[in-house]
């Protein structure tokens, strides 16, 4: 790993740490209804929404009521998006005259954007009208992210409230997350992106003549306004097919850095919000430390393998060394303006979170460089994670960790003063087990059926990696494409939709239930036998549990894909 790479990662991490505290404080104020500087502008809007929708925002909900409100809200949004896609031909803001989206692709896309996955089996500029992009996809970018933040906040309430059966109001949390956090942040970030050269218009596509005299169609559209929420909401669905490799989505080194920062921003800030709501910011920093250490390990691993490149090329006399004139290493599928470091760093960031935006093609990474994004997702998207879902996933892992620690020393496990008992452990197991069941189950189905095998473009272990990656990003609600898999088929559209939906909702439900189970419990004051959950020992234990749960479950599948491909490459059998 070059000194330049170390410096870039260090600068990136330092800025993430710097924004965590102010963002965390602001979000805590928003969700506990303390005054904020945006109140004069937003309180009247909030009140108007509640009045228009007939919402009693002060009414507290049980965890079950909260979950059902979230489910019905998502169901309605998903069906409306499906309808919009199917009928876009008859609707305005369609200057290219794009036809209605076919049913299986529309279903896949509706499931994808409702679950905050934003997997795209389509090319945006050739499939979706401006109206579908703005009123359908961008709408879900906001509300699916807001629903994730809302769920994280309500789950924190379950952990920190004492002897209370209710956990807040879903509509209050949803509206606040959208109005106070996502909309203002996206407004500012969109302006910055426009300054950097990202277009935002409703014009027909431009036709131009290239230097060689050929005619080229240059896609246009409301890009900047959707680019901001794509990263801030850890959505990841690009306006254009090639996502953030496209110069209209990610034109400059500064836009690249800011987009990477905005992917981590809210997830990092929520750890501090958690610490504040728990009454001990060190609890939040402990979770932050776990996330940061796992992130740095993944980032440097991916950068190392991408900088080293393919040894078979070096044997042919090709110069892979980094220099002032070339990035060196493995540059297949990468933008020369980003090089190895920023491509591998972005890949780690986008898969640690459930973002899934890409600025390089993960399919073209070296086998072990490409293993890192896959493992990041398989660890359960808890490394900053999806906005909201990352934090509550980490809290489930924290509960598992204190349970294991309790078993070791023979004491009743506690977390934040709440006793962890059999009900919480059953719910934690439901949360943990459905994830690998979805990924490995669907991957096994795909490799067993001709319809699944038909999507593979590279035979052998790399083809298996393509399938494993696809169902991993689906269940993890990540949405990044490994690339190379022909996924716009009935088989992949349906199975990936049925992979994404439980990956979001069937995992959120047990997490909410756990909060509902902890909320009514009394808080026990710490004693000499209490395992402190705000120190280095807990950080180490939590990292161990996350790695063991992820690594043990997925190691055999990884051995069949990227690991064996690495040995075949180094042995000179595969180039």
């Amino acid at each position: 790993v070059t000194a330049n790479a170390i410096a870039q990662v260090a600068i990136y991490m330092a800025v993430v740490v710097a924004i965590t505290v102010p963002l965390g404080i602001y979000m805590e104020r928003v969700f506990t209804a303390k005054p904020t500087f945006l109140d004069p502008a937003l309180l009247p809007v909030e009140r108007a929404i509640y009045r228009f929708c007939g919402i009693a925002s002060e009414t507290e909900m049980s965890w079950g009521g909260y979950a059902i409100a979230m489910l019905l809200f998502s169901l309605t949004g998903m069906l409306l998006l499906y309808l919009l896609e199917r009928l876009q031909w008859y609707l305005p803001f369609n200057p290219q005259g794009l036809p209605g989206v076919p049913p299986s692709l529309a279903f896949n896309t509706a499931a994808s954007f409702t679950t905050n996955t934003n997997w795209q089996a389509y090319g945006g500029e050739t499939t979706m009208s401006y109206l579908t992009q703005m009123a359908g996809l961008a709408y879900h970018n906001f509300v699916s992210a807001a629903a994730g933040i809302a769920m994280a906040i309500t789950i924190i309430r379950g952990f920190v409230r004492r002897s209370v059966k209710t956990l807040g109001n879903f509509w209050f949390d949803l509206v606040r997350a959208t109005l106070w956090i996502l909309l203002p942040a996206c407004l500012i970030f969109s302006m910055v992106l426009i300054w950097q050269g990202v277009p935002d218009n409703l014009s027909p596509y431009t036709q131009d003549t290239t230097l060689e005299g050929a005619t080229q169609v240059i896609a246009q559209g409301p890009v900047a306004s959707q680019e901001a929420i794509k990263e801030l909401g850890t959505n990841g669905g690009g306006f254009f097919n090639s996502n953030s490799t496209h110069p209209y989505e990610n034109p400059t080194p500064l836009s690249n850095l800011l987009e990477m920062l905005s992917i981590f921003a809210i997830g990092a800030g929520l750890t501090y919000t958690f610490g504040l709501m728990a009454g001990d910011v060190r609890q939040g920093w402990a979770l932050f430390a776990v996330m940061a250490l796992l992130f740095l390990t993944g980032a440097f691993t991916a950068i190392h393998f991408e900088q080293r490149g393919n040894p078979n090329l070096a044997q042919l006399g090709i110069n892979l060394a980094p220099s002032a004139t070339q990035s060196g290493g493995n540059m297949e599928g990468k933008e020369t303006r980003f090089g190895n470091t920023d491509s591998a760093l972005w890949a780690t960031i986008t898969t640690d979170t459930s973002c899934g935006a890409v600025n390089a093609m993960h399919d073209s990474f070296t086998p072990l460089g490409g293993l890192v994004p896959m493992v990041d997702m398989q660890l359960g998207e808890v490394i900053f994670g999806g906005v909201g879902s990352g934090l509550y996933g980490m809290l489930v892992m924290a509960v598992l960790s204190v349970f294991i620690a309790g078993l070791m020393v023979g004491r009743t496990p506690e977390y934040l003063g709440k006793k962890i008992e059999s009900r919480e452990m059953k719910l934690a197991m439901l949360y943990v087990l459905i994830f690998p069941a979805l990924i490995l189950g669907f991957a096994a189905l795909a490799v067993a059926l001709p319809a699944g095998l038909a999507g593979i473009t590279n035979p052998g272990p790399h083809g298996f990696s393509q399938i494993l990656y696809a169902y991993t990003e689906g269940a993890a609600n990540n949405g990044s494409a490994f690339g190379g898999l022909n996924a716009n088929s009935n088989f992949y559209n349906w199975t990936l939709a049925l992979d994404m939906l439980p990956g979001r909702f069937m995992m959120a439900i047990p997490a909410l239930a756990m909060a509902g189970s902890l909320g009514p419990k009394k808080s026990i004051p710490p004693s000499a036998g209490t395992f402190p959950t705000n120190g280095a020992l807990f950080v180490g234990l939590l990292i161990g549990v996350i790695l063991i749960v992820g690594a043990l479950t997925f190691f055999p599948a990884l051995a069949l894909g990227p690991i064996v491909e690495h040995f075949l490459m180094t042995g000179g059998i595969l180039s």
Binding site: P103, A110, L427, M506, G516
Partner: peptide, 30 residues
Amino acid sequence: MSVMLDLLVVVTTAAFFLTSIAYVAGCTRL
């Protein structure tokens, strides 16, 4: 044909969310 597929999508979506609501009920009784 496409109307039948539309219907299949709507039924599948509704079935999934109904199952999720039943899952909420199941987790309540756990």
